[in-house]
Amino acid sequence: MKNSFSTHSQIAVVSSFADLINTHFQGNENARCWSRNLMGDFKEIVDRLHLKENITEVSCEDLLALQLSEQGQRARETILNDIQLLTDFGASPCLNLVQHYQRDDECDFIATDVYSYHVDRSPIATDTFLCTYHGAASDILPNDQAKQKILIPELREKLKALYDGPESGFDDFLAEYFFDLHYQPKPHAQPINLGNGHIWRLAVDHPMQQVVPCIHRAPIENEDEYRLLLIC
């Protein structure tokens, strides 16, 4: 399949949900994309939904209650089908209407919110799935174009100054507060935007993982535009 994503060695582009889920990550690959050109009016769904908080979870019942045009109904059917596919696979998909995420303002020299490049971690074998139907889409960063923030000398020294405990517990401190999950782009790094409509599967840091986890971040939202995001 020809796709701009396929030029990156860490990304495998597939044409079905079965291909998305049925092969383990291996080698350099740590991201997989079910590339799709979706039909339907996803903006109509966003416009019909009501934002209750900065992030509002949207249920299937909420979707079914919307009065939609033919194109809106088409978009709704796609979302409901995606939710069913992921649920049948054993995942727990969540559809979110996003105005913005909470910013990390506790530490002024190292951010640990989702707008910072980071990897996901789990105590069990799992992957991250996501699809942006409307609005700004997430980015991933090739692993060789990023450096773990805790390995940057000036940041590490500041973290050591923040830590109040024995040297033997410093690494546990970094993990407890998720500092070790975050990455800094190297100069001239080239992020890869995940686009709208595609379902992505990203490698997570877990005990059985055979590849490096996928570095990604949430985008800065477009002004006056909500994101409609399926994630699990």
Rank of each mutant, 00 (worst) to 15 (best):
K160L: 15
S122I: 03
A18L: 12
D108L: 13
Q184W: 04
A75D: 04
Y177C: 04
Q67N: 14
S168M: 08
S4I: 09
I152N: 01
E61N: 05
I79T: 11
A137K: 10
L230V: 10
A146Q: 04
S122R: 01
P185I: 08
S59P: 10
E154A: 15
R201T: 02
T78Y: 01
E53T: 12
Q67F: 04
Q84R: 13
I55P: 03
Y163M: 07
Q184V: 09
C94Q: 15
D62H: 13
E154D: 13
H206P: 02
K158R: 14
H206S: 05
Q184M: 09
D120G: 01
V98N: 00
A31I: 05
T132S: 13
L141T: 01
L66W: 09
T23G: 04
P142A: 15
Q190I: 14
L66C: 04
D144G: 05
T126Y: 00
L20F: 05
Y163F: 15
R74M: 15
N193I: 02
P219T: 09
R156I: 01
P191H: 00
Q26W: 09
H50D: 11
S138F: 07
N54W: 11
E157W: 07
Y177V: 00
L181C: 03
E77F: 10
L51N: 10
T78K: 03
P219D: 09
D144H: 15
V14H: 08
C60M: 13
Y117P: 00
I215V: 07
G197N: 09
S6L: 12
I79H: 02
L230I: 04
A161H: 09
P213C: 04
L86P: 03
D224R: 11
I21N: 10
Q102L: 14
I21P: 02
N96M: 11
L63G: 08
F170A: 08
S69F: 10
R74D: 14
Y183H: 14
L162F: 07
Y163I: 06
N96E: 13
I220F: 12
E44Y: 05
P191T: 06
L63C: 11
C94I: 15
A31Y: 01
A18I: 04
E44N: 11
D19C: 05
Q99H: 15
S69R: 05
P219V: 02
Q184G: 06
S122M: 04
D205W: 04
E106V: 08
K186H: 12
N28E: 15
D224K: 14
H100I: 02
P187R: 08
V119M: 00
D19P: 02
Y133F: 13
D113P: 01
